Amino acid sequence: MAKIKPQALLLQSKKKKAPSRISLSTIIICNIIIVLVILSLYATYRHWHYRLSNGIGTGMEDIEHLETFGESTRSGLPNYAILITGKGPITIELDKDSSRDVVDKFVNLCQKGYFKGMLFNHVIKNYIIQGGHSQKAGAAVEWILKGKSQHQLATSGKHETFVLGTGKPTKDNKEFELFITTAAISDLNDKLIIFGRVIKGEEVVQEIEKVDTDQRYQPKSPVGITNVILKQEA
């Protein structure tokens, strides 16, 4: 076997140990990739921080609501609305035949989340429960005080128990309030627009009716609506 000269061995050794050079363009590309990864991670963090800080969940509940509402809009107005309250669900059959305009407005407000967080701000036993965003003296309080002063609190079947209505719009109050009757009350015929009736959850209405109230008929412990689900079938 031929012998390798010492000088040749030295040259081979230097070639093996000599580090390979990294080009400037490779360094720049690597730095750009690192910066993009950092920016992507930061953007993801900001996105989820924003969602959590604003009370937005993972999106599954929003998808469920949109699917339910989307189903109703494809075939017209929904037939039912489920009021999710602190005491349980209340299923309402909507009266689209005689109160279509009101039902249409109600559905539109549901889509915008208007009723989420709405409190039952006045509860009058054997009369009515009223939901609204205003804490001022409500229409139900004015009605009952006026009825007492005029001795007109007799009830009849003109307004059945467990019907859902809203107050007729006035110049002073354009808020869309909800009223659920807990008795058959005749003097509401000229005050309420009835657009639904309770078909499930009457016991929930009665539970709300039992809450302790102050002298202005306002519940001492808050109870209200957390969500509204619209459906074609009950």
Rank of each mutant, 00 (worst) to 15 (best):
M1P: 14
K5N: 10
Q7K: 15
A8T: 15
L10F: 03
K14Q: 12
K15D: 03
S20V: 13
I27R: 02
I29Y: 00
N31V: 08
V35L: 11
L36T: 11
V37A: 04
L39P: 06
H47E: 04
H47D: 04
H49F: 05
S53R: 15
E67S: 07
S75Q: 15
L77K: 05
A81W: 07
I84N: 11
T85D: 01
K87A: 03
P89Q: 04
P89Y: 02
I90W: 02
T91R: 09
I92L: 05
D97V: 15
S98V: 08
D104W: 05
K105R: 13
C110H: 03
Q111C: 07
F115T: 10
F115L: 08
G117K: 03
H122T: 14
G131I: 10
S134I: 13
Q135T: 13
V141S: 08
V141R: 08
W143A: 05
W143D: 13
L145G: 10
G147Q: 11
G147E: 14
L153M: 06
H159I: 11
V163A: 00
K168N: 09
K171Q: 12
K174Q: 12
E175Q: 14
E177R: 14
E177P: 02
I180K: 04
I180W: 00
T181F: 09
T182G: 08
I185N: 03
S186K: 13
L188E: 08
I194K: 15
V204C: 08
V205P: 05
V205G: 01
I208V: 10
I208H: 00
I208N: 01
D212H: 15
D212E: 11
Q218D: 00
P219S: 00
I225F: 10
N227P: 01
V228C: 04
L230P: 09
Q232Y: 01
Q232W: 02
E233T: 14
E233R: 15
